[in-house]
Write a protein that binds this DNA or RNA. Structure first.
Lengths: 338, 338
DNA sequence: GTGAAAGCGCTAACAC
DNA sequence: GTGTTAGCGCTTTCAC
């Protein structure tokens, strides 16, 4: 491995000078600079990131904690962070949290050991106090997809309530009167907010949503399928179905078809997230676009900024970072009456 | 930040002793060990990875280079590596290569700066000589989804030819006689191998595959759709369609439906990869399972092993690491005649 | 403009 | 069993 010493020796200068030309700062004579640059090139010298991180107390990595890279949503999230990282010449350090509180914390701790410049955290289960404490300790920590008032300026999140409202309104505008919802547990997280949005808009339009028409299941395709089967088994009547997310919506469509119901002729279905899977099914899924990639990129830049300005951290701003979902009309909603 | 020095000071021992108890090696008295452990706990001491990497010349990270995390296939790949990394107490350092040769190399170089213990590389475009050279320089480098004879033992790959043969055979067994293929460019990579497998099995069974029945397009849903449209426009007749991958297969199904053709009644369609998107479409896609997660996990363990045994690297073994795709029967192939 | 030198936090060889 | 010490490759302050 060629080190800064090697370069210095060959160039006949001190390592300080080499360091200066690498970072393009400090005063270095033009001749000297050119000479060192050439030698760096010739020797194919690459500064050692670990040494650099140790000496400068900040590394060239940005940490990301997500539940599971194998799910599209998190892949999108990660690729957004990666984009931001690349733009800032940083590397991605990943840690999966696998949906467990302890593992989430482990993941963060493990990233801290590496002195990441910033950390983007998609926390599912850690409680607010833990996260607030963490935010206090780690200047470059930004939460994605979660809002905690005390650390508002560290949160990049989506307005789930308004998203669900838009979806519901779309269904109402299409002339639907009989609603059903398939959602997931965790009432105090996304599913809860979305259901809240649905209920609110329905109420405002004087449409009833019987409790029996809300079915809970796991937030995946199977869950959607089972939930609709359960709804049907209970004898629920509905011509509009709101699913917690795209995966559930697609499972729901399967179950509906299997029951001899046509989508969207008999039942309109709307999803949430706008994963690419939504254009794989037939009918293509009408859904709410969750700009997760964009949000991840934004979060990354924010995290980097925060990590650099100690002041911003010291005086927590009240500004938060809210994104809005928007409607993607495709074919699973019968809106010809509009 | 609490360092090993702080711990040593509080415990009233030397840093060497602290280091010993952290690594659970070397001789340390029981009392002393317990005491140090307790203090580490109390102080919430976390060893600094960068310092450790610098001093020991090997880091706790494993690098991964993939084109793009936002695509399911690579998400699966990354999660496989992540699993292996976690099992070995390593962290994931990611770098997207974004489908360009230079970027691929950049990504690798950038990982090398961090002294990764091992690197898993999904190389799409780098030429063989470059990769062979790289393998020579980096003991822990393993290629995934690519086979290069000279560095056979560094390759974890899938037998695309046999996979395509199995798929083709399935269609033949189902009674099909008129075939079409939608594939992608890059004849010397996966698409080429798969087409080769198809041709081979067809020939063996005395079934003709007119050149006109092979259509090339980009390897995504749109590509599949366009390719089938082109096929149909040319007036090709076929009752069995082999797609390069699941994305193309689903696009193909869309185009077929749009043309008034039923799948599988009029045309049987088979994909490749077994992405979860295959169970989103209707009919659910019959496809070849590409065990990418398993392969990635395997590759990770292999890479770690290689990086540790200098000998294995010095004497390149002729053993390679080949995986086989297997058939996942679902509903897009009309096999009731079987 | 350039160099010398003191660390950064840790590992590992060696001494006791 | 335990401590001392010499680096690992780099950044950064301070002299000159």
């Amino acid at each position: 491995m060629v080190t800064i010493n090697d370069v210095a020796k060959v160039a006949g200068v001190s390592i300080a000078t080499v360091s200066r030309v690498i970072h393009n700062k400090g005063k270095v004579g033009d001749v000297c600079r050119a000479r060192v640059k050439k030698i760096i090139e010739e020797l194919a010298y690459r500064p050692n990131s670990n040494a650099r991180a140790l000496a400068s107390k900040t590394s060239n990595t940005i940490g990301v904690v997500t539940p599971n890279l194998s799910m599209s949503f998190f892949g999108l999230l990660a690729s957004g962070v990666e984009k931001g990282a690349r733009e800032n010449n940083l590397k991605l350090l990943m840690a999966n949290s696998l949906y467990e509180t302890e593992s989430e914390l482990n993941a963060i701790e493990s990233l801290r050991e590496n002195n990441c410049k910033a950390i983007i955290l998609h926390s599912e289960y850690s409680d607010e106090n833990t996260l607030i404490k963490l935010a206090g300790e780690i200047p470059g920590l930004v939460l994605i997809n979660r809002y905690i008032p005390e650390i508002a300026n560290r949160c990049v999140w989506l307005d789930n309530v308004s998203g669900a409202q838009i979806a519901t309104k779309h269904l109402i505008d299409a002339g639907h009167k009989h609603f059903a919802v398939v959602t997931s547990i965790y009432q105090n997280r996304d599913p809860g907010f979305r259901v809240k949005g649905v209920k609110h808009t329905l109420e405002k339009n004087h449409i009833k949503l019987p409790k029996i028409n809300i079915e809970e299941a796991s937030a995946n395709m199977d869950g959607g399928e089972q939930a609709v089967k359960a709804l049907l088994a209970k004898g629920c009547k509905f011509d509009a179905l709101l699913a917690y997310n795209d995966m559930m919506a697609i499972g729901a469509i399967h179950a509906l078809f299997d029951a001899g119901l046509r989508v969207p002729e008999d039942v309109s279905v709307i999803g949430f997230d706008d994963l690419s899977i939504g254009i794989a099914c037939r009918p293509r899924l009408t859904t709410m676009h969750y700009p997760v990639q964009e949000m991840a990129l934004y979060a990354t830049n924010l995290a980097i900024k925060l990590s650099e300005s100690t002041e911003a951290t010291a005086t927590p701003s009240k500004q938060t970072h809210l994104f809005i979902a928007d409607l993607v009309k495709r074919d699973s909603v019968n809106d010809k009456s509009i």
